[in-house]
Simulated assay, not measured.
Amino acid sequence: MTGPALLELDNLKVHFPVRGGVVRAVDGISFSVARGEVLGVVGESGSGKSTVGRAILRLETPTSGTVRFDGDYIQSLPESRFRAYRRRMQYVFQDPFASLNPRKRVDAIIGEALSIHGLGRRADRPGRIAALLEQVGLPRSAMTRYPHEFSGGQRQRIGIARALAVEPEFIIADEPVSALDVSVQAQVVNLLQDLQRDLGLTMLFIAHDLGVVEHLCDRVVVMYLGKVMEIGSRRQIYDTPRHPYTRSLLAAAPRIGARAGDKEIVEGDIPSPMAPPSGCVFRTRCPMAIPECASRVPPPETVAEGHMAACIRLNEPAVP
């Protein structure tokens, strides 16, 4: 990470009590996001990616650990004080239809954000809303229409406009293109990239698609079963991955120039977060696992400047 941190997570845990036990959705993760950076978070379904994003904005309540935003601890602030931070941090949801009120017109959906935070005069809001729509590539006439009248890509643009309405510093984009047709995914990704650059936004980008993350993000966090497996720059993660899980994710994603012999795709499904494996949580699917992996939780170790991985066998060669 370069530059001062805008967001810092330290040993963050989010556990959900359920009948018969506890779901350890996020189980002690730590990382920082520098001001102006785009940090990607990747991992299989069930790895805890979205829960991390929701916990930062208190859409889920952290069980323990700390969240610092611009130097302030925000995880336990009363709602009356946290509202100011909600304006500075906004969320773009995965499903653009479910996140928009179907009974409200677009001008009311976006205008609600302005009203809640008391931004601008009421008479000036139509002009502000029209400008936001144009900023995300939609015409002024979209203001008087309802969500069902738009395509999935257009609805996601409305969601992005709503997030930008309060002029945030930090955006959490939670798989913002996974519910869209392939033909429009690139358009939305390029829009986010342009907005991030033009507005100087800091962004946490949660995704399954490793190609999108490589295109958009400066650094990458790899998560598995609620824990961080590896953190590094885009080039460190994609060119010199050190954790077996990272290598397996990259092997499973089609890439130009990859050889069949390079594949390290793991088999099986991710274990239940109610009963994670002892020691290293990845050991039950890891091609490099040894008995020690069952008895010791590997701490993150520095393997290069800005590059960390949590694996007992970091200094050993990969299994061919």
Rank of each mutant, 00 (worst) to 15 (best):
T61G: 07
L201I: 11
D72R: 14
D70L: 01
P244G: 03
P298F: 10
E264P: 09
A34W: 02
H15D: 10
I110A: 06
A131M: 05
F97G: 07
A207K: 06
G36P: 03
L195F: 10
R197C: 10
A131W: 06
Q196W: 02
R58W: 06
T302N: 08
S47Q: 04
L119N: 06
L204V: 08
R155I: 14
F205M: 08
V22F: 03
R125A: 10
P300D: 07
K104R: 15
G159A: 05
R313F: 04
A131F: 01
V303I: 12
V177A: 07
E37I: 05
G306H: 02
Q135A: 13
A130D: 14
M223W: 06
M308V: 13
T144L: 11
L250S: 02
P320D: 15
I172H: 01
S45C: 04
C311Y: 02
E8S: 15
G211K: 00
S45N: 07
F97E: 14
L210N: 05
A55R: 06
A179L: 05
S233P: 05
F282N: 04
E79V: 13
T2Q: 14
E267K: 12
E301M: 13
D198K: 14
N190L: 10
R242V: 15
I29S: 02
R255I: 12
R247K: 15
A309W: 01
K263M: 11
G153T: 11
P176R: 08
P300L: 15
